[in-house]
């Protein structure tokens, strides 16, 4: 019977394709989840109440990692070996409450080919005022008992004492073309001193920041009169290469200024960052190229 050949041919074709798909999947499989690097600053505020008690708000932030699409493990605990003084919780479940939904049963994950990009939400609690804490490594514990030591990049946790400010934030905005702006109102005559950041090398490499149309490095001595305004513009230089494209950049450079009596103040510049979130940022082939550049495959 001639038609028996067609079914053999069809079955063989399907089986061959199956084997090729499984072979490629096996080749692309990650041994362990890969954590994207973070170059971030997060701040919290220390407040003293009139009755003498003090309060520091918890810090909540997230990091991203990629694992195999069929990986059913979730993160159960996180520990920072170089900052043993802080108490942190890590979870794939977003515990945050929004007006429209409260869903803490679904892990935050997006699928790209054989990979799943997942968010790890971290909550850090403090009980006293602290100097900058720098997190570079973390030990991740998964719910199946696995443990993984990961390089985080550099995450700076900062605590400010609430202080009076004479440069008051008025508005801010951003665009998906990588530009952002912040405007401020000046409520007292002040003079800009400088801008400081633990990531100054990155700011120069990745961003262009202008303050009232002047490069941020040249603002020292700029006088600002009461009632005037300050506009900070941030633009991305599109300088992220293949090994940087999935990193999280969230920088908070500080504008340091003084009043005419020499009292010093500072305020952070917001919207200096790049956070890959959307499908436009992640692709299956992009992730494969990233792993190849990192030697993870």
């Amino acid at each position: 019977m001639k038609s028996i050949k067609i079914i053999y041919l069809c079955i063989i074709s399907v089986v061959v394709i199956l084997l090729i798909c499984l072979g490629i999947s096996k080749y692309l499989e990650l041994d362990m989840p890969v954590y994207f690097e973070n170059f971030c600053e997060y701040e919290t505020f220390y407040e003293e109440n009139p009755d003498g008690t003090s309060y520091i708000q918890d810090l909540n932030f997230s990091i991203q990692y990629v694992t195999n699409v069929s990986d059913s493990r979730t993160v159960s605990t996180i520990h920072f070996p170089y900052a043993p003084e802080i108490y942190a919780q890590g979870s794939n479940y977003n515990q945050s409450f929004s007006f429209f939904s409260y869903d803490n049963n679904q892990i935050s994950a997006r699928t790209y080919g054989r990979y799943s990009v997942r968010d790890l939400y971290i909550n850090v609690m403090f009980d006293q005022l602290f100097d900058d804490i720098i997190l570079t490594k973390a030990i991740i514990y998964y719910n199946n008992g696995d443990m993984q030591e990961v390089e985080l990049g550099k995450i700076v946790l900062r605590c400010h004492e609430s202080q009076v400010n004479y440069i008051v934030s008025e508005s801010s905005g951003g665009s998906n073309d990588g530009t952002a702006f912040n405007t401020y109102r000046i409520t007292k005559d002040v003079e800009l001193v400088d801008i400081t950041s633990p990531f100054k090398y990155l700011i120069d490499e990745i961003f262009e920041i202008t303050i009232n149309n002047v490069d941020y490095k040249d603002i020292s001595g700029t006088q600002l009169k009461e009632g005037s305004s300050l506009r900070i513009e941030i633009a991305s230089k599109n300088a992220l290469n293949e090994s940087m494209i999935y990193n999280i950049y969230r920088l908070l450079p500080m504008i340091n200024y003084q009043d005419m009596d020499g009292n010093k103040y500072s305020i952070p510049i917001y919207n200096v960052g790049y956070i890959p979130i959307y499908d436009a940022d992640f692709t299956f082939s992009g992730l494969i190229n990233y792993f190849n550049s990192k030697g993870a495959l």
Partner: peptide, 26 residues
Amino acid sequence: YDKKMRIYISSYTLLAIVIIISYTFS
């Protein structure tokens, strides 16, 4: 009907291959 069978089986196989590849790689 033999002709229809051949068309059906071939088309089914082709779609099955596309479905297997697209499911595997999302």
